[in-house]
């Protein structure tokens, strides 16, 4: 004997849509969680090199990015590697300004903890990177991170010199 009253009508009842909001909410949460807002539009093409001994960058709020790579719009800007700070191209001399601005944007207590993440394309020559590093030293921004992708433990072929 059933505990529930069974409906005696012969018609097919409509499928309950009561859980439709749940599904929609689920989708919503999914996208909310996985979407990361892109704060800047990339102007340079950056394909970071692979490395095995990588560490995770914790505390994203304490990370500032310096992008170096060939411009995406090669017709307009040529193929020479450029530095991108926030939303525009910059030259080496404006790095110190950038560091000061990034410090100003943080709390007093966090100013010395900022990590500068160098997102550099793998084909960039070291000259420009060295210049940026020297500027960072001058600005006393000593915590840096070379952004790399995690590679499998095996070495890529063609890279053994």
């Amino acid at each position: 004997m059933s505990r529930f009253k069974t409906s005696q009508s012969k018609e097919t009842p409509a499928i309950s849509t009561a859980s439709l909001p749940d599904i929609i909410f689920m989708l919503l949460f999914f996208f909310m969680v996985t979407t990361t807002m892109r704060e800047t539009t990339p102007l340079v093409q950056v394909k970071t090199p692979e490395a095995t001994e990588v560490q995770k960058l914790e505390k994203k709020s304490l990370v500032s990015y310096i992008n170096i790579g060939p411009p995406l719009n090669t017709n307009k800007y040529g193929t020479e590697s450029r530095i991108q700070l926030n939303d525009r191209f910059a030259n080496v001399a404006s790095i110190q300004e950038f560091v000061t601005a990034e410090r100003q944007a943080r709390d007093e207590s966090d100013r010395q903890k900022i990590t500068f993440s160098l997102k550099v394309d793998e084909d960039v020559r070291m000259g420009i990177v060295t210049d940026v590093k020297q500027e960072l030293r001058q600005a006393n921004a000593l915590k840096i991170n070379y952004s790399t992708r995690k590679a499998a433990d095996k070495k890529r072929s063609g890279n053994i010199y």
């Binding site: 995770k56 000593l142 070379y146 952004s147």
Partner: peptide
């Protein structure tokens, strides 16, 4: 996740 090799630059 951002990953990378962390280094400390020497002071000027």
């Amino acid at each position: 996740v951002d990953t990378g090799i962390t280094r400390k630059l020497p002071p000027p």
